[in-house]
Design a binder for these strands. Structure first.
Length: 419
DNA sequence: TCTGGGGTCCTAGGGCGA
DNA sequence: TCTGTCGCCCTAGGACCC
């Protein structure tokens, strides 16, 4: 049996934990630079679609008294960590699937009362963190997603816990779920399926597996089996990432090479830190830059470059140097750049590193990086920087509605006064 | 004026050696 | 030596997720 535990409207709920006066009121959270709406409370969902550009909904926000927050990722990351620690404590096996959801796996235990188990999980999380969750149980991962959707849609009737444990319930649930809401069926595939009269998850389980394999690939076929109740997907508990990216939309246009160089170098250094945290090195790097595609009136340019490094590395100094070399190859004068990014790929364990005959990462960097990481960890991030980073840090994200870092910054911690 | 960021997996198609 | 075929590897691009 699998369970899917999903936090309700996670980012909006995190903001509400420290602003209980906003319970029952519409709340939205914006992306970096206050660009798009990336999370909505139930009350806000009525007025604003997911992913909408914030500036286009200014009037709607004002008219409906929607409370707006800039993304506060250090708060959400910390709250997520608290929720996951509780789940690790309560569940036999766990796969952290995203910042706000986790799959749990239960062995064969016919005596377990899943309704009571789910309520225990949800009560404990609510009491310890203030975050509301929904729990769905089913014999496969895809069906547990379906069960979770039902628990979330009908919280009163289900007490936010739903279990698919019979054929009757499975078929009823699948007939209820629209094809575009099935996990793994996106916009393109649901349009394709509607052309052959597949409108619900149940319809999807009734079509030929050969058609599914041909048009939706092996992943579609696995999904079909999962929805039929045949497990095809197991927990993925292997935690290390296969690629790491740092990409940003700039708060304004840049045309100057040196400004973009400084950002790209900082992205590479961020990646190096993430690599060291998961004890990996990278062999391949990709750099990209592009202009603002929404500005049809401006000259457009987009380019990327992928290159193998001469040796595997997770040194900030080396990765930053390679990133700038890559940028030099794709940068063209005369454009207004709006976005850039650095992605490192082809990762391997730093312990099982294959040494090259001629070129290798400078061994002196390892202790240096360890010291840098230690100091930055102790005194807050980015206290220590490399010389090619702008020490004054002239760029700043637009974050007009940022909430305090209630749980991760000493000066922002709430104080409770007793009379 | 203002439109996010970070991931995974799969397939098609070309290059290339056996 | 030339040519056809197979399978492997790599890359680009597309689809999906939160």
């Amino acid at each position: 049996m699998f369970a899917l535990v999903d936090c309700n409207n996670f980012y909006a709920s995190c903001e509400r934990v420290f602003r209980p006066d906003l319970n029952g009121k519409p709340v939205v959270v914006l992306s970096n630079n206050d660009g798009c709406i990336i999370a909505r409370s139930n009350e806000a969902k009525k007025h604003i679609p997911m992913g909408a550009p914030a500036f286009k909904f200014k009037d709607v926000i004002q008219k409906n008294k929607v409370h707006v927050f800039s993304a506060n990722f250090s708060l959400y990351g910390d709250m997520s960590h608290r929720v996951m620690s509780i789940l690790e404590d309560l569940a036999p096996e766990i796969e952290i699937y995203s910042i706000d959801e986790a799959f749990l796996k239960y062995g064969q235990s016919p005596y377990l009362n899943f309704q009571a188990e789910g309520e225990k999980i949800s009560n404990r999380i609510k009491r310890s963190t203030g975050i509301p969750v929904s729990v769905g149980y089913a014999p496969t991962k895809a069906l547990s997603k379906v069960a979770n959707a039902i628990a979330k849609k009908f919280p009163e009737r289900t007490n936010s816990v739903y279990i698919i444990d019979s054929e009757e319930k499975r078929i009823k649930a699948l007939k209820w779920l629209k094809i575009e809401d099935v996990w793994g069926i996106g916009r393109k595939n649901s349009a394709k399926l509607k052309l052959i009269n597949v409108y619900t998850a149940f319809d999807f389980t009734q079509i030929s597996p050969l058609w599914v394999k041909k048009h939706l690939s092996i992943t579609g076929l696995q999904l079909q089996n999962e929805l039929l109740g045949i497990p095809n997907l197991d927990l993925d508990v292997y935690g290390t990432k296969k690629s790491i990216a740092t990409t940003r939309t700039f708060e304004r246009n840049y045309s100057d090479f040196d400004q973009i160089k400084e950002r790209v170098s900082t992205f590479a250094i961020k990646n190096a830190e993430k690599l060291r945290r998961q004890k990996s090195v990278c062999n391949t790097m990709m750099i990209f830059v592009h202009t603002n595609g929404f500005r049809k009136d401006l000259q457009q340019y987009a380019q990327n470059i992928v290159f193998k490094l001469p040796y595997a590395s997770n040194s900030s100094i080396e990765l930053s140097k390679f990133a700038v070399e890559g940028l030099r190859k794709i940068f063209k004068e005369g454009y207004l750049y709006k976005k850039a990014g650095v992605i490192v790929m082809d990762l391997e364990d730093e312990k099982h590193l294959q040494m090259r005959l001629f070129d290798n990462s400078n061994p002196k960097h390892k202790p240096l990086m360890e010291t840098m990481d230690r100091i930055n960890h102790r005194y807050g991030n980015a206290k220590l920087k490399l010389a090619n980073q702008d020490l004054k840090r002239t760029w700043k994200m637009n974050q007009e509605q940022l909430s305090p870092q209630y749980t991760t910054k000493l000066s922002d911690i709430i104080t409770v006064k007793s009379e």
